[in-house]
Design a protein around this nucleic acid. Structure first.
Lengths: 342, 342
DNA sequence: GTGAAAGCGCTAACAC
DNA sequence: GTGTTAGCGCTTTCAC
């Protein structure tokens, strides 16, 4: 059973395919096609279950109704959750999502970007890796809508959605300071990307304001978690005076907890813990883990909204929107000042 | 700067686009095009950076090089990890992935399936929801390659990759029995799908073999986790004799742990715990949580391999492959028989 | 108000 | 060995 084409429809109804096309694209009124014919066509189409071939439409119009989503890693719970929300809303608006994981790797991303371009995706949602400015610029120059999330590129003028990274770690660090902790470390992945820089800055500012000495451990990210754990473990061994740790990312946090376990340090008696990113099970830990929760729904919602808006208003406006969203500091047991027994 | 088309290439080289097309599609030898011309064309193409328009190719050939991936929920760590592996391998083989989340909802899935069909995806990787047999059958009848994973539909003859669900819970339950537990509950989501049925069967078989009375709690899945927790909590309150629990899915497990905390039950002193699906942080819990680990990499690898194979050997063979993969029982503290103090 | 026809970029049957 | 040409299914200009 071959699929019907617009020509088949036209033939069977003894009209031209132009007319069918106009009716299909809601231009019947504009083209002053008789109410009656419109109805006849619509009924017939529904009856035989005809659907226009989107590939032919794409070839003709240059629009694919596909959005390219580039996350760091789709297996990462944060990005997976973002992907879920974006998918929902995109589908509702007639868009499909092609995704890919950049691994935050510049070279890989260039290849993926090329793939998306060849595929002619209509718009891009990207958590950009470093040093990708040139390729993004070329995208934008060609009039393709691009929205960043989670981080941005300072040299690129485009819409983006971020959380208030600096304020978040500032608040968290201030809280730890108020609890009476003095030797507070910041453990994170080494990165010069905006989100990570913001988090580091917030921590440094709080420590500076309080006149405290900062302890920073920037771990090189590695897919092999044992290396990360070892690196944090070594840092802990070298800095025995630490009484609190702020983790700059959830992967650093969980690896850090494993390192703390390995070092046999009690939380929060020996060292208090607070991690960026909340995670379902943190409340189940003993002690439960304090966290800076990102409002993932909001981030995703704003991101896809921004892109859909650009998609619907091509070239209408060039104003770039930058949205900053607040995080929530969730205080649990791990960051409480314990009464030391002496 | 307009993109070049094959016609432009042909014109600039003063040859016909057929020749260019043949060279592009590696049919130069077969068509006996001179070595020299081939080289000239290839160099020119590389020089100007020409890439064929995949949409025009699709329209012409009916192939899109897109794989449709239907998971239950892309935000679920299991499915996200699967998606990651499939993406990797698909990209390496020149395929892109369009994904969607079915929510295990039949009606929603029908719509998504329709969307994929309209989009003309080349092949399907699906974790099928219930009652979708008709639509899948129609897919297969139309010659479209379909591979299931995580579960299958007994009435549909197609390739699938699953784990050994029944054996997994059989082993786990037997382990608990050997530890000396007598009142072992199985808490899971109510579902008649093959994977869930297998897990239930394994548990029942083990209990039956040991002459023990089964305690089953089949919770209705709800995105609002508090309802799940409450339901498990109620079950715990009604069955105070329980000394061990086997959870049939990781979401049941984490919700269950929250219910146990709420009920103020100590693990494993009051009740031992073992959960289907391992999760990064289970080893960090106090006590650490025992789990049945699915080899996600293997599942994904076999699944995409099966599909790629079908894609490359269209119609060559109709033999269906069903792959069953073993799980790993990871024993930690939560399932150890505690020495009760009396 | 409706239809003929061009053309989006590509592949491949067929001609020479 | 290479070129001509028909179409894949659709949108849209232009003519009537």
């Amino acid at each position: 059973m071959k699929k019907l084409s617009i020509t088949d429809i036209a033939k069977q109804l003894n009209i031209s395919k132009t007319t069918v096309s106009f009716i299909l694209n809601n231009r019947a009124q504009e083209k002053r096609i008789s109410e009656e014919l419109v109805l006849r066509v619509q009924n017939f189409i529904k009856e035989v279950g005809y659907k226009p071939n989107p590939i032919a439409q794409s070839l003709r119009t240059g629009k694919t109704n596909i959005i390219g989503l580039m996350v760091e890693n789709i297996a990462d719970p944060f990005f997976a959750a973002i992907a879920r929300h974006i998918e929902n809303k995109a589908n509702k608006n007639g868009y499909k999502i092609i995704y890919c994981s950049t691994d935050n790797n510049t070279k890989k991303t260039k290849g993926l970007l090329q793939m998306f371009r060849e595929q002619n995706v209509d718009g891009y949602i990207i958590a950009p890796p470093p040093d990708i400015e040139q390729e993004i610029k070329s995208l934008i120059d060609d009039g393709l809508p691009v929205v960043f999330f989670d981080r941005h590129l300072p040299d690129i003028l485009t819409d983006y959605v971020e959380i208030n990274n600096e304020q978040s770690t500032l608040n968290a660090t201030n809280y730890l300071i108020k609890q009476g902790f003095k030797n507070i470390a910041f453990i994170t992945f080494s990165s010069m990307q905006t989100q990570m820089k913001g988090r580091l800055d917030g921590y440094l500012l709080a420590m500076h304001n309080a006149g405290l000495k900062p302890y920073i451990n920037q771990v090189t990210f590695d897919p092999d978690e044992t290396l990360v754990i070892q690196s944090i473990y070594d840092f802990l061994k070298k800095n025995k005076k630490l009484d609190a740790i702020l983790f700059g990312a959830v992967q650093a946090g969980t690896s850090g907890l494993k390192a703390l376990k390995k070092a046999n340090l009690q939380i929060p008696a020996d060292v208090a813990v607070l991690s960026f990113d909340d995670c379902d099970v943190f409340e189940l830990f003993s002690p439960s883990i304090s966290a800076i929760a990102q409002p993932i729904d909001k981030i995703a919602e704003h991101t896809i909204d921004l892109l859909l808006h650009k998609l619907n208003n091509a070239n209408t406006e060039t104003r770039k929107e930058n949205i900053t969203i607040d995080t929530e500091l969730i205080l649990r047991e791990s960051s409480e000042r314990a009464i030391k027994e002496n």
